[in-house]
């Protein structure tokens, strides 16, 4: 079994979206390209037969996180053009480090022998019913922990984003009088 053409197209789309999201100057354009990368990943999951994960990715990332990032950019006035230097030694070091990480990962993949190994050709059935049963039976404790963590994260995000109170309003009133 060989790599199919749709997989390659989706992979190129995803990687192009990721590169554009990390290199464009204006933050709003970055957020839109990031959305393209997330949508491409969701399509990759669907292409690989993981329908539930692909739809969850579409719902959570394209639907929620992309909107959240756009809101954060607009609320912090990040849409303004800034004089970001196009080249800096720290930036070059970061790119070199990322390239080194990719080289190590690629070396590990190429030398691990899976290039010539026959992959499991049969498309595995992953119906929603079996995923739901697994979530409700075998993985019910992690599911409850995740629910608790999401609640805590929601409350924490609301508290963090609340407007800070003035330090001492009584003193201000006294000085005004």
């Amino acid at each position: 079994m060989r790599t199919t053409l749709p997989f390659l197209i989706l992979a190129v789309l995803t990687l192009a979206g990721g590169v554009a999201a990390m290199t464009l100057r204006r933050l709003v354009h970055c957020a839109l390209c990031l959305t393209v990368a997330f949508a491409g990943l969701a399509a990759l999951y669907l292409n690989l037969g993981a329908e539930f994960a692909g739809l969850a990715q579409l719902l959570v990332y394209v639907g929620a996180i992309a909107i959240l990032i756009v809101f954060a950019i607009l609320l912090t006035r990040g849409g303004d053009d800034k004089a970001e230097p196009s080249f800096s030694p720290a930036g070059a070091a970061g790119v070199v480090l990322a390239a080194a990480v990719f080289a190590v990962l690629g070396w590990a993949i190429v030398t691990s022998g899976i290039l010539h190994q026959a992959a499991n050709p049969a498309a595995p059935p992953a119906p929603m019913r079996s995923i739901g049963l697994a979530l409700m039976q075998r993985y019910v404790l992690p599911l409850e922990v995740i629910a608790l963590m999401l609640t805590a994260a929601m409350i924490g995000a609301v508290i963090l984003a609340l407007r800070e109170k003035r330090p001492q309003p009584e003193q201000d009133q006294r000085s005004a009088q």
Binding site: A11, T14, G18, V19, I109
Partner: peptide, 26 residues
Amino acid sequence: MNPLAACLLVSALLFAIGLAGALTRR
């Protein structure tokens, strides 16, 4: 190419892109 290896290579490339962005963007 083996589809699993293609998957892993795309994933490694995406990881490197994300790492480069996280390290270089201000």
